[in-house]
Nucleic acid binder design. Sequence first.
DNA 1: CTCCCCCTTCGAGCGCGCTCGAAGTCAAAC
DNA 2: GTTTGACTTCGAGCGCGCTCGAAGGGGGAG
Lengths: 127, 127
Amino acid sequence: MEFTIAEVAEQTGLTAHTLRYYERAGLLDPPERDWNGHRRYSEQDVGMLRLLTRLRATGMPIAGMRRYADLCRVGPATFDERRELLEEHRRQVLERIAGLQSDLALIEYKISVYGAPVAGVPDLARP
Amino acid sequence: MEFTIAEVAEQTGLTAHTLRYYERAGLLDPPERDWNGHRRYSEQDVGMLRLLTRLRATGMPIAGMRRYADLCRVGPATFDERRELLEEHRRQVLERIAGLQSDLALIEYKISVYGAPVAGVPDLARP
DNA sequence: CTCCCCCTTCGAGCGCGCTCGAAGTCAAAC
DNA sequence: GTTTGACTTCGAGCGCGCTCGAAGGGGGAG
C-alpha cells in the first residue's frame, strides 16, 4: 500500500510542505516516485513519520531526529545506538514532565490565592 | 529589600537583557530607579518574575503573560479574570502532560523493539 | 587621572521550525 | 481546447523569544 503526499499529510497531521521539508532535512528517505514524478510513500515511510511526529511533539529538535534517521540508514548495526538515543530522549521527556508538574504547583498555589469565586471577600492577599 | 538587575538575573535565571525585554514587553511594571538611573527591583517584582518564569516554562506565550500582567495593573477587580486565565492555562498544561505521556508510549514501545542489549540477537524485527 | 565594572538605551540579528508563494508540469474533466 | 487541480522545485519569509553589540555614563579603587 502506498500513499500520495496529500494522504500522508492527512494521516500524520503534517502539511505537504512540511513533509517535503522533512525530506530535505534528512529525516526521511526520499520516497519512491510514480511514473510522473509524484512521491509515493510506503507504509514504512508513514511509520517512520509517526515516530518522528512523536519525537517532535516531545521536544526533540530536528537535529536529533536527523541523527536517529541517519542511524536508521546505516542499518541494523546501529540498533543499540538508536535505543540509547531514544532512552536518552525518554529521560529528558520525563524530566520535562516533572518540571511541568512542579511549575504547575506554583500556578495552582496562585489560583488558590485568588480564591474560589466567593462573594464578599476583601482584598486581603494582594497577589 | 531591593535588588539590582544583576541580582534579579541571578535569582530568576533570566539574563539582564531578558529582564529589560520583559519590561519593554509589558510583562513587568518598570521598577523604581535609584539616584543614578539604575533599576531597583522590589520583592514584589521578583515574585511576579518568579510566576512569569513558571508560566513561560509551562509554555505560556509572551502575549498571554502580558494579558495577565495587564490584569494585575488594573487592580483587585480582576481577581476572577486572573484566576480564570491561570485555570485555563492549567488545563492546557495538564493536556500537554497527558500528550507527552501518550507520545512517550510510542517511544517506549520503540525502545522495547530495539530490545535490551542482549548478545546474539538477530535482526528479526527491523523497526 | 586612569582603569574597571556595572549600568543605561536602542535597534539589529539570530536560531528554530516551519510556511508560503511563484512558476511549472501533467492528466483528467468538461 | 481549456480549465481544474494535484503535484513538482526552489528559495524567500515569518513568528517567536530572546540575544547581542554598540555607544555612552557614572562611581569607586589605585
